[in-house]
Amino acid sequence: MNTDSIFSSLDISHYIYLSSVLFCIGLFGVLTRRNAIVLLMCIELMLNAVNLLFVAFSSYMGDSAGQLFVFFIMVVAAAEAAVGLAIIVMIYRNVRSTDVGLFDKLKG
């Protein structure tokens, strides 16, 4: 991989824009979808946008802290996904659906 050329010919702002776009796509998904599993996927997408941003900053600055942060985000995302899916399965058992729109029982 011709890595030098990336840093010299590509500005960091492109990565910022790319991850912003990714994050916003994820946000759009969170706002529009109602299937809990898809929502979870959209959140994963947002997390990945953040990861990309961290890696880009970290590489451009030559500082390893950002990459380590990404590592921890991945770790935590795995744990979170496990718990989240468990919750979704639990709900599916009760209501036979994963539609979060059904959950408007509690209103005030």
């Binding site: 991989m1 890595t3 990336i6 990565y15 990861n51 990309l52 890696v55 880009a56 970290s58 590489s59 990459q67 990404v70 590592f71 991945m74």
Partner: peptide, 9 residues
């Protein structure tokens, strides 16, 4: 990531 030199990640 590979392009950004972050092979591990």
């Amino acid at each position: 990531y590979v392009m950004l030199n972050a092979q591990f990640l």
